[in-house]
């Protein structure tokens, strides 16, 4: 097994008196997708926001490549190689799909102050954007405005924007939310493919997808870590069955 690229230890976030995330520790490795599951309000999205820097932690450490990044702003973490998707689709609706990815790729351009050169003339950036679209199978929609894409395509676009920044660690917040069966299947295949050469932390409600994709599972309840292990271990865990999986079998 490779060394962990991300190590989270005793991470906590308090909102007033409420601990949304309470002393959570976990590790993420390249090639071994790590899924976080738990009922609504368990603190999964808060965890992602802490890792991406949208929120700052009340206590604990976030070690990325051996470096504590807990105090860094989101943009600094992004530049280090951490990229995230959002639970609610978060793209630039009034830009074309290509422009969405081009902007993402442009963030790696070290000299954005060359005001005389048109943005489209930066070959390497544009080609990175095209590659990202290709990776999520959206090449044929490159010149369509993002708001004209279907919901599933918009979710794919969001992943493409992540990829265009060439990240090492992907934080995916419910990428399957609101998708139909067919769209979900496409997205699952895409994530499986990405998982080969990226470290991925996945938060997802779709249990079939989670058990299909994950090599490590962490179960969160009420902000705390309830259990962690391989899918088999989690499936067999009595506590988890009571707290979570049991409920999930009934239609909600």
């Amino acid at each position: 097994m490779t060394d962990p690229i991300l190590q989270v230890s005793e991470l906590s976030k308090h909102f007033g008196g409420l601990a949304a995330v309470d002393r959570v520790s976990l590790e993420v490795r390249t090639g071994a997708l790590h899924a976080v599951i738990g009922p609504n309000g368990a603190g999964k999205s808060t965890l992602i926001n802490l890792l991406s820097g949208e929120l700052s932690a009340s206590a604990g450490h976030i070690i990325f490549h051996g470096r504590d990044i807990g105090a860094l702003a989101p943009e600094r973490r992004s530049l280090l190689g951490i990229s995230r998707s959002f639970q609610k689709t978060n793209i630039f609706p009034s830009f074309t799909a290509l422009e969405n990815c081009r902007l993402a790729a442009q963030s790696r351009e070290p000299r954005p102050w060359h005001w005389l050169r048109g943005a489209l003339s930066y070959q390497s950036i544009t080609s990175k954007a095209h590659q990202a679209l290709e990776a999520v199978d959206l090449s044929d929609r490159a010149n369509d405005l993002a708001l004209t894409l279907s919901h599933g395509e918009q979710r794919q676009l969001e992943i493409a924007m992540c990829l265009a920044t060439e990240p090492q660690l992907l934080l995916l917040d419910e990428p399957l939310a609101g998708m139909g069966t067919e769209e979900s299947q496409r997205m699952i295949q895409l994530i499986a493919k990405l998982s080969d050469n990226h470290a991925i932390l996945l938060v997802e409600h779709d249990m079939d997808a989670v058990f299909q994709l994950a090599q490590t599972l962490t179960v969160m309840v009420d902000g705390r870590l309830l259990a962690s292990g391989t899918p088999e271990q989690i499936r067999a865990n009595r506590q988890v069955q009571v707290a979570y999986l049991g409920e999930a079998e009934q239609p909600t």
Partner: peptide, 9 residues
């Protein structure tokens, strides 16, 4: 979308 720009670096 300022937030998205930050998260892209």
């Amino acid at each position: 979308n300022e937030q998205r720009m930050r998260s892209m670096g």
